[in-house]
Nucleic acid binder design. Structure first.
Length: 598
RNA sequence: GCGGGUGUAGCUCAGUUGGUUAGAGUAUCGGCCUGUCACGCCGAGGGUCGCGGGUUCGAGUCCCGUCACUCGCGCCA
């Protein structure tokens, strides 16, 4: 007999009745009746009920064991009587009568209960992550992650992509985020950077002629964390040669749609080949963001022209000053109290906006200060143009175009949530396309790249030479699902002449470009295929599929919001010897006053 | 760097207009119980109410500061 088990804890059924078996696992729960004791024995696979009574020497041992102790049970499989069958348990038709027990590991009192699914504070969960991971939901999430990655990998391979590994210790790549630096012992005063993405390497693999690359790639960015953002994360990084933007879309859509369908658990998924393509400008206009949640049916409209002349002085003034007025409909809100509308305004203020105006409408009757001053006839006209009904309210976001769009976008989400308009049970994908190549940097008072300088401008050299830079679009695209940006991607600029020209428009001379990006330019001068790709975030994909709202819930050992690993105690101080070897000296930060644990 | 939320027993939480010795569930420890599956019943221990200061006859409660956790903004293409 195997030292630890003949079966796992999800395996035994009525077919095994009468067999002598050996099971190992954790004491999930105990139910002690004095003369008889039940133990739910749990392992990775499931739970099996163990029984011991006064005839069994195991009784006394089990009696004094705390939850989460690890034991090996020898016993025999018994059928449960009809009235004691547990239909909630996979193994609920049987139980194992314990004849002998081996204690493998006794557990002390737990800082975090395993046998329930309550919410516990983040720092407790992270400090005792190994306990947290034993819990059902977390265990399932991490398993899902593995299965999703396996599925993605297979789908990519099936499409002719080849998996590569690229360096972790590398030089800074041309991304916008702060790098993590790693000091070099052999080259004092020099540093490696951890990759923000394997951007340069995957492009070089295309220049090397490998045609289709992918990698489940770890990426590192030293920026502040969010619920959907960590210092380190994984991307399904891929790149393709001799492709147009459309080819990239057609390669990725079946991978994403297929993977989501496989794990959607009944939810509907946008069909491959049917992902809407929304130009960036249109997304900002209609959704107020470049990562729209298409489950929200509300659409923002521009009503600026209605307020060029208006009794509502504030908007007239904003429009006169070059601002815009955007509106978010609030359908069927005739029965909503004034509080509902005021709360929305308060919410907008709490988010740091100036305020959110509104018009109410009940049975065709307009209400609220904007409607009163603007006049019912003009409101009627506006409503007719927007196709709104007699019981629809309207929220107003006015100001400079960028600010108004942002407020309208936030309001669209808030109204959609408040009115419970967000469609549940679906994953809605879209591509955001036609990102602007350049934007005007208000601070620096100059034109600069708006996103990635290495994307190919639409219209290529001719566009750069003839168009207003701010009008030029890039072959650059994001893929968005339910309001989460899953990835950015682009058709890359593989032409040195176009690259120099693009940098020139952003105010960089050739010498600077050669100095900063000489390696890439050099490679492109020696025969580079047109190429492009993208890199959907694995953590966010799994988060969506697990129905979670933070990527920490789908990462086995995540950091807290301060970038600390509470289990391992990272980051931590280096020893003097380590520093000396690296030719480093630490500048002590001023001490904060002594703080107490919360 | 900034704004919001939270902080009371190991853990999850309640705690009224400021008023006696700060409670419950769970966990722990002890006792009882032979059919439970979130077992049940009886009992016990467990608290610097995050920390510091202030107002007050009196502060878990009000005020100021501070720390921790978290969500967001900035940042991150």
């Amino acid at each position: 007999m195997h030292a630890y088990r003949t079966h796992n804890c999800a395996q035994l059924s009525a077919d095994n009745v009468g067999e002598t078996v050996r099971l190992s696992g954790w004491v999930h729960r105990k139910r002690d009746f004095g003369g008889v004791l039940f133990v739910d024995l749990r392992d990775h696979f499931g739970i099996t009920q163990i029984v011991a009574d006064e005839d069994s020497p195991a009784l006394e041992v089990l009696d004094r064991l705390r939850a989460e102790s690890v034991v090996t049970i020898d016993g025999e499989v018994k059928a449960r009587s009809a009235d004691t069958v547990n239909p909630k348990l996979e193994t609920g038709d049987i139980e194992v009568f314990a004849r002998a027990i081996t204690l493998q590991s006794a557990a002390e009192e737990l800082p975090l209960p395993v046998a329930d699914e309550l919410d516990y504070p983040e720092h407790i969960r992270l400090k005792y992550r190994f306990l947290d991971l034993r819990r059902e939901t977390m265990h399932r999430n991490i398993m899902l992650r593995s299965q999703v990655i396996t599925s993605l990998r297979k789908r990519m391979t099936d499409q002719g992509f080849t998996e590569f590994q690229t360096p972790i210790l590398t030089a800074s790549s041309p991304e916008g985020a702060r790098d993590f630096l790693v000091p070099s012992r052999m080259h004092p005063n020099n540093f490696y950077a951890l990759p923000q993405a394997p951007q340069m390497f995957k492009q070089m693999l295309m220049v090397s002629g490998f045609d289709r690359y992918f990698q489940i790639a770890p990426c590192f960015r030293d920026e502040d964390l969010r619920a959907d953002r960590s210092l380190e994360f994984y991307q399904l990084d891929f790149e393709m040669s001799f492709v147009t933007q459309e080819d990239v879309f057609q390669a990725l859509e079946p991978v994403l749609a297929g993977t989501f369908e496989e794990f959607a658990d009944g939810k509907t998924v946008t069909k491959s080949g049917e992902f809407p393509r929304i130009p960036y400008a249109e997304a900002i206009m209609k959704f107020g963001t470049d990562k729209p949640d298409l489950r929200n049916p509300l659409i923002i409209s521009d009503v600026t022209s209605h307020f060029e002349k208006s009794g509502f002085g504030l908007f007239e003034k904003i429009v006169g000053g070059g601002g815009v007025v955007r509106v978010v409909p609030a359908p069927n809100t005739a029965d909503k109290s004034r509080k509902f509308f005021d709360d929305m305004n308060n919410w907008a203020r709490s988010e740091g906006f100036a305020g959110l105006g509104y018009v109410t409408r009940k049975g065709g009757e307009f209400g609220g200060p904007i409607a009163k001053n603007h006049g019912p006839e003009r409101m009627e006209e506006l409503y007719n143009e927007l196709g709104l009904g007699p019981d629809d309210g309207l929220f107003f976001a006015a100001g400079k175009e960028k600010d108004a769009a942002k407020l309208a976008g936030a309001a669209r989400t808030q109204v959609g949530e408040q009115l419970e308009l967000i469609e549940q049970g679906c994953y809605k994908f879209c591509w955001i396309v036609d990102f602007p190549m350049f934007e005007y940097d208000e601070e620096a008072k100059k034109v600069d790249f708006s996103h990635n300088p290495f994307s190919m401008p639409q219209g290529e050299m001719e566009a750069l030479e003839t168009m207003d830079p701010l009008e030029i679009k890039a072959w650059q695209y994001d893929i968005v699902c339910n309001g989460y940006e899953l990835s950015s991607g682009a058709i890359r600029n593989h032409r040195p002449d176009i690259m120099y020209k693009a940098f020139e428009l952003a105010g960089y001379d050739n010498a600077t470009v050669d100095k900063e990006f000489g390696g890439m330019i050099e490679a492109f001068k020696l025969g580079a295929p047109p190429h492009g790709g993208s890199a959907p975030g694995i953590d966010r994909i799994v988060m969506l599929l697990a129905g979670e709202e933070a990527i920490r819930e789908v990462i086995a050992f995540p950091m807290n919001q301060k970038g600390e690993d509470l289990m391992m105690g990272a980051p931590s101080k280096a020893t003097l010897a380590q520093l000396r070897e690296l030719a480093l000296r630490v500048v002590e930060q001023p001490q904060k006053p002594n703080s107490q644990e919360g």
